[in-house]
Structures are given as C-alpha cells and as structure tokens.
Design a protein around this nucleic acid. Sequence first.
DNA 1: AGGCAGACCTGATTGC
DNA 2: TGCAATCAGGTCTGCC
Length: 281
Amino acid sequence: MPELPEVENVRRDLNSSLEGLVFRDVKIHRLDVIKSPRRDARKRVSSLLVGGTATGFHRHGKRLALEVDDGRVLEFSLGMSGQMIIETEERESNWTHAHLIWTLESPSSGDSHRLIWRDPRRFGGVWAWPDFETMFARKWSQIGCDALNMKYESFRDRIRKTRRSIKTALLDQGLIAGIGNIYADEALHRAGVRPRRMSARLRRRELEAIFTATQDILLEAIEAGGSTIQSFKDPKGGEGRYQSAHAVYGRSGQPCHHCGTKIQSTTLNGRTTCWCRECQK
DNA sequence: AGGCAGACCTGATTGC
DNA sequence: TGCAATCAGGTCTGCC
C-alpha cells in the first residue's frame, strides 16, 4: 500500500512520538513476520530493540528503519497493508493482526506507550540488523536511489538505459526507490507523458518534466499526509488527504480536471494504469 | 531483456 | 441481508 509519502509520514510520526523512549518489552505474536536471514538473527530477534533508546528514524524509498542507541536497527517493509500504531496507556485497542507489540517508557516522565506492528495481508516484513551500516551495505545500497534524494543526472542516466515503458521503469525499486502505482500515474499525467512510452526514447524535455513532476508530487503528497485509498493510517490513526488531489489514479471514466476528456484505464505489467489521452502524449 | 501470469494474504467494496 | 466475485499504495519467482 504505502509509497514514499505514506512511509515518510510514518517516519515523521514515529520520530516525534518515540524519540528518547526506551523499548522495555516486546510481545511476538507471529514470529514469521521477522525475515532476518542470518543464523545469528535469532539472538537479535529475541531482543528486537528491547533495552535500547529510540534514536534513529530512517527511510529509503518505501523502506523504514528504527535505530536504538546501542546501534541495533529494525528494518520494516510495509508491503500493502503494513501499519505502525502508537498508543498511549489510556487509549489501548484490541487490534487484529497485531504481530509485534512493544512497550516503551519515557525515562523522564515514566509514561508508557505501545508501538504495534500490524500487517493483515503480511506482504510486509521486519528485518533485524546489528547496525545501520550493515543494513545499508546489504539492503539499502542494493535498491535504487531514493526518489526524493536524487539528482536529475542520475535519474536521467537510469531511465535512459532501459527499453521498458516509462511507468514500468518508475515502479522498478532497483532503479528509483519510493514510487508506486499511485504516484507513477500522477507524475506521468503532470509531465504529460503516456505511461507506455519507451523510457530510452524519451526526449530530454520529457525526462526533465517527469523528474520535476515526480519530485513535486511526492513533496505535495508528504505535506498532505499521503494518500488514504482504503486503509492507510499514520501511526496516530490519522488518514492522508492527498487522494482528493489525484488527477488520474482511481478516476477512470471521470473527466480530466485539465481538459475534460474521460480518464483512460488499462493494465500495464499487471497494474491498473490511469491516464488522459489528451494531456499525455 | 522484458513482459506477463501467478503466488503470497486479508478485507473492503461491488453486484446480483 | 447475504454471498460470491473483484479489487487493492507491493514484491517475488518462474516461464515465454
């Protein structure tokens, strides 16, 4: 579900709510949500940040990581339905599919909080790492550069050398990390480029427009709290507001806001794809 | 190389 | 109201 703007909102919420809190305890309700590969992972799994103080809140593309003061890191991929939930003592709910539940404590006030990893569809996962550098070397450096933390030249070079459609290329996390189905369609509409255009044949002008549109839309979406289509909620239970700004995604058959033409919809690489045949060439 | 179908899952929505 | 079919912000594998 969540793309870069949604994950960034989760990161910011965790940062503002959990920084400086101590992980006191964790309850593991489903061990198989932890995907750590190494044999010694079990030792790390058994503690899962417990005893550490939350100090780092990182994101690369759609991936998220929590770091504690002794260096340990937990990496999260939210998949389609992964959710982080922060609750205070007074407001505890009984969540279904709550696979991991931490208790955190404020060293100054003594207040306690719960952090819940919930993932009904279980397309997401959690990885335990000894430190940020190891995670970066083995995981984050292997995926593409972050869509927001990217130079135009690097974007251009990556897109130019593939013969796939531009939409497929934008969705490829190995090229550029963070863009998913919503924001790929939205960026291509704003840039005026059809999703099936071959990446390697795009003009400089078009590549620049796609780059700019991507960055602008991701930033606008972050500021709007992301897009809530069915189920996205930030850690405090809030919904995104960017879905009302969508120009094409989820608007098949409705008039284009710009020219009034009916928004088209098709399937590209198994993903529903929406575009305007007048605004996009 | 790249397109495509299918697999992994549950839940919300749609249509009869 | 109920029940089945369809669809979903994501990856991954394996086949042509």
